[in-house]
Every structure is written in C-alpha cells, then in structure tokens.
C-alpha cells in the first residue's frame, strides 16, 4: 500500500499538519481503516527524508508545537508518476485502485486515462487466467481460477462504472 503517495495527494491541495492530514485522509477514504497518528508521522518523516515533503512552518498555539508540512516539486513529480502507473491486478489491488482514482480526482489528474489503461491491464490478466482455466485439467484448479476471475470482473465493472460516473458527474450536491 502506498500510503506515502496517498498522503502526497492530500498535501497537493495545500500544506497541513499531521493531525489535519490524518483527518483529511480519513474523510477522503471513508471505507478504509482510519490512520493511526504514529503511521502518519512515520510516513511524513520518511517523505521528508526523501525530499518529497518539507517543513512549511512550525506553529505553537495552545498545545504542543505543530509542524505544518508541504509537498515539494519532487513530491509532485512522485505523485504524478504514481497516478500514471497502472496496478498489477491481484487480490489486494482493489483498495489501491480506489485510492488512486480518488486521489487523481482531487489532484485534477486525468482519471479517465488512468481508468482506461487500468482496464486494459486487468483485461490482459483476465485473458491469461481464462487461457489457464481452459487448459486446466482439474476442476479444483478451474474453481480457484473462477474465484480470481470473479474478483477481476468485479474490479473491471467498478472501473467501468467509475468512468461513467465521472463522465456524468455534474459536481454532485452542493
């Protein structure tokens, strides 16, 4: 899971400190497990070490000192690279597809292009598995492949529905 790039996607909208970053992330991805603060700060430390975020300012209000982080140009490049990269279809890819699509929408990236390319990658995987299933001698092997194919099919339907939803989106309720 690329939490780092997802957080870069949140920071692309503007500088935030760790607490607000966690809150914004949890709002964007309501179906995901809420982030732990430790996880957010450990990730920010790593992103800063790699030059992808930088300290924007340090605020001292009523409580303890708070560091506000901003995405760097290198961080924006990394985010753009991740948004352009299709995912290897597999049992745990679905979460990543959702994260990437929502992040792309927020970042104003070309989500239609990503969704189109991801469909091609998924369909290629499905084609390989379909050939394996046709060649499988054991019913057990076919059943196991059926399971993987059904999940890929669900991902593909979601990809297609998402394209339609984005294409027809009028901005939603205000």
């Amino acid at each position: 899971m690329s939490l780092g790039t997802v957080l870069l996607g949140v920071l692309a909208d503007g500088p935030l400190h760790g607490y607000d970053l966690k809150r914004e992330h949890d709002e964007r991805f309501p179906a995901a497990r809420p982030l732990a603060y430790g996880q957010v700060y450990a990730t920010l430390t790593r992103l800063q070490r790699d030059g992808l975020v930088e300290t924007f300012e340090t605020r001292q209000e009523a409580g303890p000192e708070r560091t506000v982080y901003a995405i760097t140009d290198l961080g924006r490049d990394e985010l753009a690279r991740w948004l352009d990269e299709t995912e290897q279809p597999g049992p745990y890819a679905a979460d990543e597809l959702v994260r990437k699509t929502i992040t792309a929408l927020h970042a104003g990236a070309d989500s239609q292009r990503y969704l189109r390319r991801q469909r091609a990658v998924h369909l290629t995987a499905m084609r390989d598995l379909t050939q394996q299933r046709a060649a499988a001698a054991e019913v057990g092997t076919r059943i196991a492949l059926d399971h993987t194919l059904a999940h890929l099919d669900a991902d593909l339907r979601w990809l297609e529905e998402t394209r339609e939803r984005i294409a027809h989106d009028d901005g939603g309720p205000t």
């Binding site: 084609r127 598995l129 379909t130 194919l149 593909l156 339907r157």
Partner: peptide, 10 residues
C-alpha cells in the same frame, strides 16, 4: 468482461 477476455484484443 469474462467473454471479452477470450479474445486476443479488445
């Protein structure tokens, strides 16, 4: 999609 996957190309 499962039918499309039998073809060489989409």
């Amino acid at each position: 999609n499962r039918v499309a996957a039998v073809a060489d190309r989409e």
